Computed example of a mutant assay.
Amino acid sequence: MQIDLGENPLALERQVCFALSVASRSVIGLYRPLLKPYGLTHPQYLVLLALWDREPRSVKALCELLCAEPATLSPLLKRLEALGYVSRRRDRSDERSLSVELTEAGRALRTEAEKIPYRIVERLGMEVRELEELHTMLGKVIEATRRAPTPGE
């Protein structure tokens, strides 16, 4: 199969990486003022979303779900614990495994957080259907990157 990228394959405005980078920073920027009253960063919010879906979760499971490294996730969890939203403890059946669960404050925060997706959709001014289609396409991009050979292979 022949791939045709046109006359200028290096044009910045044609780069998928550039569009994804700018879109990511821009969308995350919309979350900042909504999360600030709760003392949360966007990555911390993602951890809470995972825990609101199901808890407790091991740090390992959270890393896999959020596609994050333990060294990245550990400081987020410490901060969430300091804020009183989560607790961490060693799994009794496996002392090597650290279990994370919501506190009562973390569970109560869910009610407030349920407003956030609606406010993001309003701020974006896009149809829910468009955002669902975008989400589907991004899921395909994520899956394709997981299957793609790494450079040098």
Rank of each mutant, 00 (worst) to 15 (best):
I3S: 01
D4W: 04
L5I: 05
L5M: 10
N8H: 14
N8E: 13
P9E: 15
L12T: 15
E13L: 09
E13S: 09
R14N: 15
Q15A: 10
V16I: 09
V16T: 11
V16G: 11
C17V: 13
C17K: 13
C17W: 10
C17S: 12
F18G: 05
A19Y: 04
A19P: 02
A19D: 07
S21H: 06
V22T: 07
R25F: 08
S26Y: 06
S26K: 08
V27Y: 00
I28E: 15
R32F: 01
R32M: 00
P33W: 02
L34E: 04
L35P: 07
K36I: 02
P37E: 09
Y38K: 07
L40V: 00
L40K: 00
T41C: 01
H42M: 03
P43R: 04
Q44Y: 02
Q44M: 07
V47I: 15
L49N: 13
L49P: 08
L51C: 08
D53R: 09
R54D: 05
R54I: 04
E55S: 09
E55Q: 14
E55R: 11
E55W: 10
S58R: 05
V59E: 11
V59M: 13
K60Y: 07
K60S: 10
E64F: 07
E64D: 14
L65T: 05
L66D: 03
C67Y: 06
E69K: 09
P70W: 08
P70G: 04
P70A: 08
A71E: 14
T72Y: 13
P75L: 00
L76F: 03
L77A: 02
L77P: 01
K78G: 05
R79T: 03
L80S: 06
E81T: 14
E81P: 04
L83K: 04
G84V: 06
G84Y: 07
R88D: 00
R88I: 00
R90Q: 03
R92D: 01
D94R: 11
D94Y: 10
R96H: 02
S97N: 15
L98S: 15
S99V: 11
V100D: 00
V100W: 01
V100A: 00
E101H: 08
T103Q: 03
T103K: 03
T103W: 02
G106Y: 01
A108L: 14
L109P: 01
T111S: 12
T111Q: 14
E112A: 08
E112T: 06
E112V: 03
A113I: 02
E114G: 02
E114C: 05
K115V: 07
K115W: 06
P117W: 11
Y118Q: 12
I120A: 03
I120N: 02
V121T: 15
V121K: 12
E122M: 13
E122W: 13
R123G: 12
R123I: 07
L124A: 01
G125D: 08
G125M: 10
G125V: 09
M126N: 04
M126R: 10
V128N: 08
R129F: 09
E130I: 12
E130L: 14
E130Y: 15
L131P: 00
E132H: 08
E133C: 14
L134D: 03
H135V: 01
L138Q: 04
G139N: 06
G139S: 08
K140S: 09
V141D: 01
I142G: 10
E143G: 06
T145H: 09
T145G: 05
R146V: 11
R146H: 13
R147N: 09
A148P: 10
P149C: 12
T150G: 05
P151F: 08
P151Y: 06
G152A: 01
